[in-house]
Amino acid sequence: MININLLEFSYSDDGFHLSIPQLTINEAEKIAIIGPSGSGKTSLLKLISGILLPQKGKVSIDDVVINQFSDSDRRDYRIANIGFIFQDFELLDYLNTEDNIFHPYRITRALKLDAEVRSRANSLAQEMGIQGKMSRFTHTLSQGEKQRVAICRAMLPKPKLILADEATGNLDPTNKTKILDALFRSVDKSKATLIAVTHDHELLNRFDRVIDFKDYCLQDVA
């Protein structure tokens, strides 16, 4: 369960201010965050994951207060417990599909790349329909395939929380549905919590709850 309490955040160099008095997200819940550009949706994801630190308030995941960790501990916690999916995939073009999926394991000691992980990666790739593309470089893949690789990368460490920042923003309608299906399947299977920032109102009915950010002010529309 994610708990945000009396959170105050602002960037020092502009007038942006985010204020969230209280927000609770339950375990295995699927949340969509909507709102105009610059309303603080991505900032919220960064605050939950510990990339940004609030000036005031608490962000806790399963009673662990993330913003009280040291920088190094926050990173270790993040890589082991939070999966990120980005709008433009953020895959490394010099690595093939397989190496991109294993990438989190190669950049931290908190995760160990062993036979079990490799076998899980194969199962995930199969579920996502990219098992035949494991040795291909990502620049040779289609947009849909790239996002599937990014989902595999996010899901492989079995995170309890998935943060998707406009994960379907760069996809055509057919791919959008397919990718979302694949993501939901995977999230359901692992019983992870999903928080997805989206501009796509057609997809909102598939989420358990929608949170609308308007004028930097939090509104729960569920």
Binding site: S49, I51, D71, S72, R75, D76, Y77, R78, I79, A80, I82, F84, F86, E90, L92, H103, P104, I107, T108, A110
Partner: peptide
């Protein structure tokens, strides 16, 4: 951008 991505994923500065 690549460095930012791996920071977001949780890679520390030393790595």
């Amino acid at each position: 951008k690549e460095i930012n991505t791996i920071f977001h994923l949780g890679c520390n500065r030393a790595t």
